[in-house]
Write a protein that binds this DNA or RNA. Structure first.
Length: 422
RNA sequence: GGAAGGAUGGCUGAGUGGUUGAAAGCGAUCGCCUCGAAAGCGAUUAGGCCGUAAGGCCUCGCAGGUUCAAAUCCUGCUCCUUCCGCCA
């Protein structure tokens, strides 16, 4: 979340950022509430100071074995006033806290302003595959090769779930291992295997709650949530912690399944692997010094790109515009892999800098080496990369005229040295 | 799921109503000593809010309550440990 002090001191900047995100939030009401809160706080502190003083006096009287009756009875009134103010303050605090939790991060100045069409392609890599036949979609290919069974997944669970089978299941597992090995061996990440269920505090820490509760799978009896991304458990590793500056930057990578209700997105990309309720993803998460976070973001994107290059998937990199930016992010690059069957650029990675937004919510600090003072870390995360769509791109781009799939070389060591799925 | 015990600063741990934001020890940092180090000695060593500052206020797992006054008493909750049960 944003620092209330920052909002108070930069109201116009925050208002402009809300406008750029196309959100209508009454910031003046929030500032007014904060004024009220601070006024009460001042009064209350004054009363408490009186109480503390009186306590010392009563104590001194007791020590001197003198009568304390008058003093105590005169303090009763103040005690009641204090209680009243305390409850008023509590109400104001919780209202303000709620409002603050719903203010999104301020986009970085380099982020294009406007609706999602304003996103900017900053670079691309690879040749679009040219085939002398009409490429099939991953759905057709998967069914023909009997490596994904959409119908039985729907029977077992519901629509938009995936059941991988045979070489499909193996391919999925190979991709996970390949990506984890790549990031740990070549990019210096430490591997994490976190819980797939998290509590409310964790979901609030990374910014999914309170705004996006209806997009999450929730276990009502236990008030736990299925993670929508490994970002949630991995970022929350350091919730309420103070890190040493020497330990920064910290790079973590984790495979997890990701669960998304995708409420309200019916009818959009609902076929095949493009939009599903459960998918696998290898995620990268960074904890860095504030000055370093934008350089780290570039490196993070490069780390994700390396995966797509190693897999030989043509892709492009886009900076998202202010209205496309997620709630907690200040800047985000999307990686889009081209898939020839559906003839679409598929979003397979989102790499974001959250600056101190998540760190403030989750209370993740570090102690500066020189001044010994505390400051919030900056957090970043990026997919490296999301699997279902990547599988679609691999199947479609590597398909042969006979319907078989050439396995990208980088994956062969993970697939018994096999060169083809047929 | 049942029973018992516990949660205090970076760590260990004292503290059962008022001078305790908190003893003591460890660790850490700085200084003295030393050629250098160890040992020893001395000092410093929680975070947040308000304030230019002086200073004030808050915080002893969380939330309520009792009281003039709560780390300390009461209630609820969360988490941890141990034992039993169940279980991959």
């Amino acid at each position: 979340m944003l620092d209330i002090k920052f909002i108070r001191e930069n109201p116009d900047l925050v208002k402009q950022s809300l406008k750029n995100r196309n959100l209508k939030i009454d910031l003046d009401a929030l500032i007014k509430l904060d004024d009220y809160r601070r006024k009460i706080l001042l009064e209350l502190e004054d009363l408490r100071a009186k109480q503390n003083k009186a306590n010392d006096e009563i104590n001194a009287l007791l020590k001197a074995k003198k009568d304390t009756k008058d003093k105590i009875s005169s303090m009763k009134e103040i005690s009641e006033k204090t209680k009243k103010l305390e409850s008023e303050l509590k109400i104001a605090d919780s209202k303000l806290g709620e409002l603050l939790l719903n203010i999104p991060n301020v986009p970085h100045e380099s982020v294009p302003v406007g609706d999602p069409t304003k996103k900017k392609i900053v670079r691309s890599w690879g040749e679009l595959p040219k085939k002398d036949f009409k490429p099939a979609t991953h759905i057709e290919l998967a069914q023909r090769l009997d490596i994904i069974d959409f119908n039985r997944a729907a029977k077992i669970t519901g629509s938009n779930f995936i059941l991988y089978k045979g070489w499909g299941a193996k391919l999925e597992r190979a991709l996970i291992n390949f990506m984890l090995d790549f990031h740990t061996q070549k990019h210096g990440y430490t591997e994490i295997f976190p819980p797939f269920l998290v509590n409310r505090a964790s979901m609030t820490g990374t910014g999914q709650l309170p705004k996006l509760e209806e997009d999450m799978y929730r276990l009502k009896d236990d008030d736990l949530f299925l993670i929508p991304t490994a970002e949630v458990p991995v970022t929350n590793i350091f919730r309420d912690d103070i890190l040493d500056e020497e330990k920064l930057p910290i790079y973590y990578t984790a495979y997890t399944a990701c669960f998304r209700r995708e409420a309200g997105s019916y009818g959009k990309d609902t076929k095949g692997l493009i939009r599903v309720h459960q998918f696998d993803k290898v995620e990268m998460v960074k904890f860095v010094r504030p000055e370093a976070s934008y350089d780290e973001l570039e490196k993070l994107v490069a780390d994700a790109e390396d995966i797509l290059r190693a897999l030989g998937l043509p892709y492009r990199v886009a900076v998202l515009s202010t209205q496309d930016l997620s709630f907690s992010a200040s800047k985000c690059y999307d990686l889009e892999a081209y898939a020839s069957g559906v003839d679409c650029w598929l979003e397979v990675s989102s790499c974001s800098n959250f600056e101190s937004f998540q760190a403030r919510r989750a209370n993740i600090k570090f102690r500066k080496k020189d001044t010994k003072k505390l400051d919030f870390v900056h957090t970043l995360n990026g997919s490296g990369v999301a699997l279902a769509r990547t599988v679609a791109a691999i199947l479609e781009n590597y398909q042969q005229k006979d319907g078989s799939i050439i396995i990208p070389e980088a994956l062969r060591p993970y697939l018994d040295g096999q060169e083809k799925i047929k």
